[in-house]
Write a protein that binds this DNA or RNA. Structure first.
Length: 880
RNA sequence: GGUCUGUUGGCUCAGUUGGUAGAGCACAUCGUUCACAUCGAUGGGGUCACUGGUUCGAGUCCAGUACAGACCACCA
């Protein structure tokens, strides 16, 4: 304890160093890739968080992206992780409206211009919040390339894509049935509707026949019968065979409507007859198209019935439902009402029940875009990790329907379509035409609607790189390497990026889609603000440090599976960080200056062991990082750090460091420095702050910082000694056995007991060499390596390992009964193992079909067990 | 209705091409000079949900069953 250690406190204090290092890295420009045409870049696009967002545990999963980014940067790839934010059309508009409401303002008061001004102000104030918070997590993205989906360039990309698709005939405007949110007053795409189970009723209503019999239909929505334009039955249903082509009378409105036959009707459900309301039900709409039925929309977009609803005009849908049911009852046409549970679609933003309704909207024709996108995954051009998510993707893509892209909102990319009020011509153009291409009128009116927010996100992998301009970034970084995201947005985003990338760039946007699970709370519930079970990552970082949180999120998780988060996990990770910190502190304290290399040192068993494990860990960590198995990388590093380096190597280095032998001391220093150096590099992708800090504190030659040097370790065959490593394992086993015996015997921990070892065949040299290890770690004194069993002390506690028989002459402490019991237990276990081995080796099938190496291993093990058995039997005899 | 996932020690979860089950936390006993009590040593604890199959050998592959969860579809 002669070295000053004022720069390393006893406990790791993350708060002090995280901000410092982040600033150093960012200011130094180390997150910016150096474009090198000779090298293949590694590119990741950050899923842009909504500007409405605050950092939550879901975003904390961006750690995965940072781990990949940092690994590849260290491995020498020009690495770009491009960050940005999403304007989140509907979500933001809702938030801004809320703010306005508090001031007593509405959209209508402000007008479009005024509203957009407010929205931009809102964005300027809150839009940067989340990206600042990402810095706290350590996200090493290239902020100089940060993008926002409504940036000028990205907006240009949106208009370009819209026009291209329109010109190809893949975007059209049509009056079709869509999902409508009466709260947000906008259309939604199919996937923006969520379904929740609601208990309701099934009303059975009699429609009197005109030329023939009456028909009873069942409905969950009596109010929509006002818009009925037919009744449908299954063509093969004998009950209604006579009725097809005839008519029934729609109650209340007394409209005569036809009975049609359509395969869509399931004869076994309800009465087998379905009322057809084309304007308010997607299936009915399809039926109407097939049969050329009239489409009557009886509800307005605010959820209020219109004049086509006759006496109910002006009333709300729910009120109308009650009134219609009551009227039917009065007319004696309500056959029965039964309780019924069914799924009701709700808006994914506001939760209000959505109305399927016909409306004039813009759509993308999906089939031609989906086909090559399916092929891209099928061919392996883009692969999913884990692969099972490809199935989810296929499922959706193969059953895809046209995408409703127009929204009746103001915040977003306005649809680049222009209408001439003079001649009625519509033109679609990248920039507003100065006059109508048809009649020359200068009175052009742009479409009022904006695009689905996901339309612009779909272009993210190339719009962020400058497209439609041909930029060096675009040429170098596209297609990207990996997209990392949660399984919840495969449809919203991943699928749309794939077909957009293929359509616009001619190439799939990423080689790999790495899908991760969702962060849940300790009980497995989804974390959410409303449920009050959310944990703020910033609080966690405050308490345990960013590295600990990062570690907790990537370790102990299998790819694609949800993760139950609890602070206990982060606490364990914090403890690991502290362990690393103190190991480094020990090394620093004892290095005494710049250490030498290990090249010229005389290495002993323990040295060769840790060096061998070190090479193995380098190989494993690299492999796991490359395979996206971050949890396995973490596990491997944890074991090596704690159970090998700290528990054994550091302990074993103490005699050399504190002893008088300079050669031994220098060697110990060299080894500690070598291993720690590699360890820091391997750990850096997951724990960037602490590793960088420690690295900076160590007096290593020629170092400038982990991030700067990007010096990823490669396995060194010169320090790989599998034979010696195995010997050391045998030694460790003996140490453990001695400790166990001592504890069991109640030997005072401070007491140094004598230790005699009778080596198993072939272990003599190793044990001779390991004598100091036993003294140090098994608290032994005067270790003797025996050559004959006869030399063993009669009065001793005994044990047997694969490498040796153990004798601890304890004199008065030897308890014959305990001795007998323990030997008996060991005997039984060894006999069992021998029996198992013998059975295996007697099995013809095993001998003829198992790999030769395995058989050899089994034989050797059996040999070893037999030797142990002999030793145990001899001990049992002594013990009586 | 369809697809997918999970079911491994008290809890949370790992388990890489099939070769006699692991970690963290918790628990028990012991331990305070010499990096770390955010620590050390040692130990107890699992018929790997169930049934059948393939195999010399199955937690691992196949089929089915049960339970839990997710997603898609939405028959009014």
């Amino acid at each position: 304890m002669t070295e000053p250690i004022e720069d390393m406190p006893k406990a790791y204090q993350p708060a002090d160093i995280e901000a410092k290092w982040y600033r150093t890295w960012e200011d130094g420009g180390y997150f910016k890739p150096k474009i090198d045409p000779a090298k293949k870049p590694f590119t990741l696009m950050m899923p842009p968080p909504n500007i409405t967002g605050q950092l939550h545990m879901g975003h904390a999963m961006y750690t995965i992206q940072d781990v990949l980014t940092r690994f590849h940067r260290l491995a020498g790839d020009p690495t770009l992780w491009l960050p940005g934010t999403d304007h989140a059309s509907i979500a933001t508009e809702v938030k801004v409206l809320e703010a306005l409401r508090e001031e007593g303002l509405t959209k209508e008061n402000l007008g479009r211009e005024g509203f957009l001004k407010r929205a931009w102000e809102w964005r300027d104030e809150y839009g940067g919040r989340i990206v600042k918070q990402l810095r706290r997590l350590g996200a090493s993205c290239d902020w100089s390339r940060e993008r926002f989906t409504m940036d000028e360039g990205l907006s240009e990309a949106v208009a370009e894509v819209f026009c291209r698709l329109y010109e190809k005939g893949l975007i059209y405007r049509g009056d079709r049935i869509i999902q409508w949110c009466p709260e947000c007053m906008t259309s939604l795409s199919d996937i923006e509707v969520e379904y929740e189970e609601q208990s309701s009723h099934l009303w059975h209503v009699r429609y009197p026949g005109v030329e023939g019999q009456d028909v009873v239909v069942a409905t969950t929505r009596p109010e929509t019968m006002l818009g009925d334009t037919a009744v449908a039955v299954n063509p093969n249903d004998p009950r209604y065979a006579d009725l097809v082509g005839k008519h029934v009378r729609l109650p209340i409105l007394d409209r005569i409507i036809p009975v049609v036959a359509d395969e869509y009707v399931d004869a076994s459900f309800g009465t087998g007859a379905v009322k057809i309301t084309p304007a308010h039900d997607p299936n009915d709409f399809e039926v109407a198209k097939r049969h050329g039925l009239e489409i009557l929309r009886v509800m307005n977009y605010d959820g209020v019935m219109n004049e086509l609803a006759g006496p109910y005009a002006g009333k709300s849908a729910s009120e109308t439902r009650r009134l219609v049911a009551a009227e039917l009852e009065r007319l004696g046409l309500l056959v029965k009402v039964e309780p019924y549970t069914h799924n009701v679609g709700v808006c994914y933003r506001c939760g209000r029940t959505v109305e399927p309704i016909t409306s004039l909207q813009w759509f993308v024709t999906m089939k031609p875009l989906a086909e090559p996108a399916i092929e891209a995954v099928r061919s392996g051009a883009t692969r999913f990790a884990p692969e099972r998510f490809a199935q989810v993707y296929y499922n959706w893509m193969e059953n895809i329907r046209d995408w409703c892209i127009s929204r009746q909102l103001w915040w977003g990319h306005r649809i680049p379509a222009y209408y001439c009020d003079d001649c009625g011509t519509m033109s679609v153009a990248r920039i507003k035409p100065s006059k109508c291409p048809s009649c020359g009128s200068v009175e052009l009116r742009q479409d009022e609607d904006v695009l689905d927010t996901w339309f612009s996100s779909a272009l993210w992998p190339f719009s962020t790189l400058g497209w439609p301009k041909d930029t060096p970034d675009l040429r170098y970084f596209y297609p990207t390497s990996v997209l990392v995201t949660g399984y919840d947005i495969i449809f919203f985003w991943v699928a749309r990026m794939i077909f957009s990338g293929i359509e616009q760039m001619g190439e799939t946007p990423f080689h790999t889609v790495m899908i991760h699970g969702l962060v849940r709370d300790a009980q497995g519930r989804k974390m959410s603000k409303s449920a009050g079970n959310g944990i703020d990552p910033l609080d966690v970082i405050e308490r345990f440090g960013a590295d600990a949180l990062r570690w907790a999120l990537v370790s102990g998780v299998s790819p694609g599976n949800d993760l139950r988060y609890s602070n206990e996990k982060t606490e364990a990770a914090r403890n690991f960080a502290n362990k690393l910190w103190n190991a480094a502190r020990f090394v620093k304290m004892n290095l005494g200056g710049t250490p030498g290399g290990i090249g010229g040192c005389e290495l002993d068993l323990a040295d060769k062991w840790i060096l061998t494990l070190c090479q193995r860990t380098v190989r494993d960590a690299e492999r796991h990082y490359r395979d996206f198995d971050l949890a396995l990388a973490a596990q491997s590093l944890y074991d090596f750090t704690w159970n090998a380096f700290c528990d054994w190597t550091i302990e074993l280095s103490k005699p050399a460091l504190f002893g008088g032998d300079e050669l031994k001391r220098d060697k110990a220093r060299a080894i500690l420095a070598y291993v720690l150096d590699i360890l820091l590099k391997l750990l850096h992708p997951i724990m960037p702050f602490i590793t960088e800090e420690i690295y900076g504190l160590l007096p290593l030659p020629g170092k400038h910082g982990l991030l700067i040097e990007a010096d990823w370790p490669v396995p060194d065959a010169a320090f790989d000694f599998p034979g010696e490593a195995a010997r050391m394992e045998g030694v460790i086993e003996i140490v453990r056995a001695v400790r166990a015996i001592r504890l069991e015997r109640g030997v005072a921990p401070g007491r140094r007991a004598r230790l005699d070892l009778l080596p198993a065949a072939g272990w003599e040299d190793a044990l001779e060499e390991a004598a100091p290890i036993f003294e140090r770690l098994a608290n032994a004194q005067g270790v003797r390596i025996l050559t004959r069993r006869d030399d063993a002390p009669a009065q001793a506690a005994r044990g047997v390992t694969a490498a040796a028989e153990i004798f601890i002459p304890l004199g008065e402490l030897v308890d014959i009964d305990k001795e007998r019991a323990r030997i008996g237990k060991a005997l039984a276990q060894t006999r069992q193992e021998i029996a198992r081995g013998e059975a295996k080796l007697a099995n013809e099938g095993f001998l003829s079909k198992a790999p030769a190496g395995l058989i050899e291993e089994e034989r050797a093990k059996l040999e070893q067990r037999r030797a142990m058995l002999a030793a145990l039997e001899a001990q049992a005899e002594v013990a009586g």
